[in-house]
């Protein structure tokens, strides 16, 4: 990949993704990428900032993952007992709060408090560390773990686990999935990949109190 410095502008802010079967184009105000997916080469004009590079990588990885059966999920990710547990949620759901509590207790390693990667490998879902962090702004945690479970988040006065209807978990996962493409084919892949996940790993709902990390005892 050839990187060319080009400051660009702040607008438009949302990446536009297009793919004709061979050439992938990802364009935003501050980066412009043209990638030959068969030759695996590309040129990226990019503003030399961490934020811009982060945004480009999110756009590129989300596209590649969706087409390989996986996806990136807005979620908190914790490791416990050698397995990964993901807590999907939109902004304000409590991902960073939960992550900070877990990190502070020493009872659960944090994969990311913002975006976690999921891929189906040899018939089993695995979660992967990513360079994408939210409020915790720590370095990404490299590694991969078998997915142990998914829990939808609900802030509460007391901790508790309950069953989540499959339709509800599917809807939440769709809303939390990172996808910048607007074409129907990508949307169909997203829906298929997500359906595969909810079928293999039914989600629960975690009610958690922000007082401490006692909720970790309920997981795994």
């Amino acid at each position: 990949m050839e990187l060319v410095e080009d400051r660009g502008s702040q607008n438009p802010f949302k990446p536009a993704v297009s793919f004709d079967g061979r050439t992938l184009k990802i364009k935003r105000g501050d980066f412009d990428a043209v990638i030959d997916t068969r030759a695996r080469t590309g040129v990226v004009k990019v503003s030399p900032t961490e934020q811009c590079l982060d945004a480009f990588l999110r756009s590129l990885l989300s596209f590649l993952l969706i087409r390989s059966g996986g996806f990136m999920l807005h979620s908190a990710g914790l490791v416990k007992g050698g397995k990964a547990y993901l807590f999907p949620g939109i902004s304000g759901a409590g991902k960073s709060t939960l992550s900070k509590l877990a990190a502070g207790s020493g009872g659960g390693g944090v994969i990311s408090d913002e975006i976690n990667i999921l891929r189906l490998e040899k018939g089993r879902w695995r979660a992967f560390g990513s360079p994408f962090w939210g409020e915790m702004r720590a370095d990404g945690r490299p590694g991969s773990w078998t997915l142990g479970g998914i829990y939808l988040l609900k802030k509460s006065a007391a901790n508790g686990i309950s069953i989540c209807a499959q339709a509800q978990s599917y809807k939440t996962l769709l809303r939390c999935l990172v996808n910048f493409s607007k074409d129907a084919k990508t949307a169909a892949l997203v829906m298929a990949n997500t359906a595969r996940l909810v079928s293999a790993s039914p989600a629960g709902q975690l009610k958690f109190s922000k007082e401490n990390a006692d909720f970790l005892r309920l997981i795994g």
Binding site: A165, A167, D183, A184, K185, A188, A192, V198
Partner: peptide, 9 residues
């Protein structure tokens, strides 16, 4: 034609 849909649960 540009919609994607799927029946789940």
């Amino acid at each position: 034609k540009d919609l994607a849909f799927r029946r789940v649960a």
